[in-house]
Design a protein around this nucleic acid. Structure first.
Lengths: 241, 241
DNA sequence: CTGAAACTGTGTCCGGTGGACACTGATTGC
DNA sequence: GCAATCAGTGTCCACCGGACACAGTTTCAG
């Protein structure tokens, strides 16, 4: 009932996890899921996820859009494949035996992925099926917290907390502009609005005066979260004597 | 140059921050931005943001879609209006003189808004212009941190950290199902996949064994963040003697 | 060796989307 | 009263995701 031949999440799960249907008869497939995903990623990197359409992807590969449906059941599944390919496998935890260093490294690595493919922010919103690669990222966090007296659900919560933070930072980094701070049209606009209505947003107007360099937003939240986790772990460490 | 008559963010800013163009000649407008936004919200609440189209909204109001373009320059602006109306103004900080209580209350209130209008998650992704109501939420956080030795940018970072956490929680709450835990098709599917590939995700498989009730995800991250902030503020409180 | 089965890629069609544009008709100021 | 103005409509377009029937190719079974 859960994994029938519906057109819902089960279909995506089958594509991401399933055994590839073994090809025997007929002409050899000229395309592959990998090539299709890479083409989609190329378009999304250049023009955003909104520019990814069946015909754009097919056109880039010099095929018609309908031929893509021989490989991918629908656009949602195509995007899922793109996500899996774009996030890539998380690095192995080199050295760094302590959980804090591992989580710190993990978060920065995730931030890099979001920076390299900003459309991942759009593609990974909403309820969806995660693929093996994405789950591997989650596994890293939970594994890093092994041995810290945290319960299973608590470790999952910690993962969500970290991932949510990185997401938020990546989002505001994207709003600021592709690289450092080219024009920052949006931020300038918002800053102007805040200053213009400084009477309604006094604290905000005061807070945005000093730009002070920035790009420390990731560090700031990361340190706060890790500090908070460390406090909890320390508390758990010594049982209520 | 920044706020010309382009069709970019400036257009949205003009609509959200007004002034409304003064009407003089001609027939009275039968519709209003408020009515249109409410219609859009009604559809999005019932069927998700994807179901919101110009003709759906127009149809609900018994008008043609093109008449909407008399009020709203495009769909993006319609969604921006919906967001502003749906988040609503944040409550005034009743009592609660300490920053921690205020931030806690703020986060829970935001989580409620996301719960009431799950499509806000889709609508508030990506670079966009924030309206006065949304900025008022941000103002609350920054104001709550007045008097804690945190710098302006640090307060903004703290706001992003809190908002990011609430977002993440709301997202996984939506994945779990509309209410408590009706079928949880997605979670069941993912759980099955993890168990099926337990060799590749050992820590994950071990962590999802005990469901333990949950809905503590919001509390967990919130406590960790507030603990982390408290540690920083305490450190700042006593200058490096 | 031959024919059928299986499979890939294509062309055509459909409903729906956001949006441009010209138009009708109502309203108001001069 | 007249003309400027503006609300709402109808028609059109390009594009989207996708269904479906079809032609061409490859392989296997007899």
């Amino acid at each position: 009932m859960t994994s029938g031949s519906d057109d819902g999440p089960g279909r995506t799960a089958r594509l991401l996890w399933g055994p590839r249907p073994k090809p025997t008869r007929g002409p050899k497939p000229a395309l592959s899921l990998e090539r299709i995903a890479r083409a989609g990623i190329e378009i999304a990197d250049a023009e955003g996820l909104g520019a990814v359409s069946m015909q754009r992807v097919a056109g880039l590969l010099d095929y018609t859009k309908m031929s893509l449906y021989r490989y991918v059941p629908g656009k949602a599944e195509l995007v899922a494949l793109m996500v899996e390919a774009a996030v890539g496998a998380p690095e192995a935890p080199v050295g760094l035996p302590d959980w804090r260093g591992q989580l710190d490294h993990w978060a920065r690595q995730l931030a890099e992925a979001f920076g390299a493919h900003p459309w991942l922010l759009d593609a990974t919103v909403g309820p969806r099926v995660m693929g093996p690669t994405e789950l591997a990222w989650l596994e890293r966090v939970v594994a890093a917290l092994d041995g810290t007296g945290l319960t299973g659900p608590e470790r999952m919560d910690a993962a969500a907390l970290l991932a949510g933070h990185v997401r938020g930072i990546a989002e505001q980094a994207r709003a600021a502009g592709p690289d450092g701070a080219p024009e920052s049209e949006l931020l300038a606009l918002l800053g102007g609005l805040v200053r213009e209505h400084a009477d309604r947003f006094p604290a905000l107007a005061a807070a945005i005066t000093a730009p002070d360099g920035r790009d420390q937003a990731l560090d700031f939240g990361l340190e706060r979260i890790l500090d908070g986790l460390e406090a909890l772990i320390a508390r758990r460490g010594r049982p209520p004597a």
